[in-house]
Design a protein around this nucleic acid. Structure first.
Lengths: 333, 333
DNA sequence: TTGAAAGCGCTAACAT
DNA sequence: ATGTTAGCGCTTTCAA
């Protein structure tokens, strides 16, 4: 049987409460008391029972990170940064993969209590935020995603509209006029796709270039496979274009593959830009011009904001923070 | 205040135990009792307090997945598969990122109790397994890694020696004779690098090709950056070679970048193979010939083996399972 | 600066 | 097929 706090107290010749104080960072100890406690802990190899502490204190020391997927480099890199930041602050991270499935997302959202976490960070592509029941939440929640998709929660946002606008402008400013919108979605919805589409449109308006609807291709899958498929399909139609604005790096990377298969030179025949600046963007052939979306900054702010909410007396306003982003020019455009 | 089981019992007009039975899958219920309980749960929006359940039952319903990093596609894909499999079985996954740091690894290993998990899956590159204190473990543990690095724990292994041998043979059988060993480590240690190095050596022995020590390059970083750096450095020395055997896909992908920068054609001047078959291998330019290491299979077996150990009466032998692997030929070789 | 007692919400053991 | 009792190991009053 593993040692309990009572055992430690007995061996150290103090009360349970004193040992508890020790573990909770209580500062006032006779040096001798502290030494005796530490010796007892050592001798018994005592490790605290977290379930008991949770039950009593109502805190778990865990947060949940819910993501549509983990295999996508963007989410993997976000997750690594979140886990690293949380670890540094003494929190553990439960990772939930929702598959971008709305029902699963809502289930996770409503299940914080069963999940047994103090708070949640939610990175979502699929969920519309306006119909989330904010009052039904059992723990603090921080969203991570595209600026503009929500105003009602703590939100660490990537200014993807501005980023895609900037990337598209970079293409247009080169004199390219037929730019494929890879990820297009012209809905009024507050989705990542719709937000980024607006950036693409604004760039064209600014440059006075007319958008050809034939170059606006959506993709249900925002991974490399999806980008490849969408662009290959476009190529099949016989459409001509001199650039591709991928609404994320993975799709842009997929587009690179499709172009290579078609024998088109990048950037000579077709220039390509992405958005996110995932690690892989630097190692594609050619290396991908993209917009750095401040992944690490986002992760750190998300954790910091959440932990702030966990502080008992916290009454600060709902925070919307926007990550700094910047164009990263490489060979593909 | 959130509802407790006692509240549910009162509203349903039954005892706490009956409600508890309901949640624990007890099958014998009067239909009416079941309906009353469900109505009460609904009415109160009851969600069980997991901390209390854990404290009492000694089970947490959580496992820990410890990995050197998450941003590497191989680990990200492994993690996604582990999380998905665990979710399917009703377990949550706490992800720990060790940074491949031995001290951190040992800390995680010894901290299962404080971590509050029922078991652990440990994917490690850095840890030597022979000095892990098997008796000090507080929960069942399953290792995931290269075959041959451990015999003392439940182990779901990738036969990387055989895989690298096969990949290297594929190069040698083409008549290539100067094959770079990217990831080389000629230590007697049971590390991934050493194991894969043996595969490279065996392939050469079989083919009767002499290994040039100048082509054996190690890399502290097994990511794309590391592969790029190591191969670039080799190129600097003026070494000539007609192929590269990357001991994992990420390094092979980095090598592709280095070769392109040097103006070398793949596979005409230099053929490249990797190991793992991560998703990205299909989308590099050119697409990477590699060995599929059965990532998903590994994740599923690891979870299944761990859950088997969690079954109370389980007394089965330590299991060493080896994942099926197979060469995947693409354009790069 | 430390101690004693109560109780968090659940399940195990036993009873019926 | 359902109820009663006890207690898991901690933290939280309250007291000294």
């Amino acid at each position: 049987m593993a040692a309990t706090m009572a055992d430690v107290a007995r061996v150290a010749g103090v009360s349970k409460k004193t040992v508890s104080n020790y573990f909770n960072g209580y500062p006032y100890f006779k040096p001798e008391t502290r030494a005796r406690i530490e010796a007892a802990i050592d001798e018994l190899g005592y490790q605290m029972n977290r379930a008991a502490r949770s039950l009593r204190s109502g805190k778990t020391g865990r947060i949940c990170l819910a993501l549509p997927e983990l295999a996508q480099p963007y989410f993997a890199q976000l997750a690594e940064a979140v886990v690293a930041t949380a670890q540094r602050t003494g929190y553990e991270v439960i990772v939930e993969v929702t598959g971008g499935d709305r029902d699963h997302e809502l289930e996770v959202l409503g299940g914080a209590r069963t999940l047994d976490v103090d708070g949640m960070i939610f990175g979502s592509l699929s969920m519309r935020h306006d119909d989330v029941d904010a009052d039904g939440l059992q723990v603090p929640l921080v969203f991570v995603g595209d600026r503009g998709v929500s105003e009602r929660f703590d939100f660490v946002a990537v200014d993807s509209e501005e980023g895609v606008r900037e990337a598209t402008r970079y293409l247009l400013d080169q004199g390219r006029t037929r730019v494929v919108a890879l990820g297009w979605e012209d809905s009024g919805d507050a989705t990542s796709a719709a937000v980024r589409t607006r950036g693409y449109i604004r760039a064209h308006e600014e440059s006075g270039v007319t958008i050809d609807p034939a170059l606006c291709v959506g993709s249900p899958d925002w991974g490399m496979a999806g980008g490849d498929r969408a662009l290959s399909a476009l190529l099949e139609t016989g459409a001509t274009f001199d650039a591709v604005a991928g609404f994320n790096d993975a799709m842009a990377l997929g587009a690179l593959t499709a172009l290579r298969r078609a024998g088109l030179a990048v950037p000579d025949d077709v220039a390509v830009v992405g958005f996110d600046n995932i690690l892989q963007a630097e190692y594609s052939a050619p290396a991908l011009t993209t917009v750095d979306a401040g992944l690490t900054w986002v992760a750190e702010r998300a954790v910091a904001t959440l932990l702030q909410r966990l502080v008992p007396g916290d009454g600060s306003e709902t925070a919307i923070e926007v990550a700094p982003s910047r164009l990263v020019v490489r060979e593909s455009a």
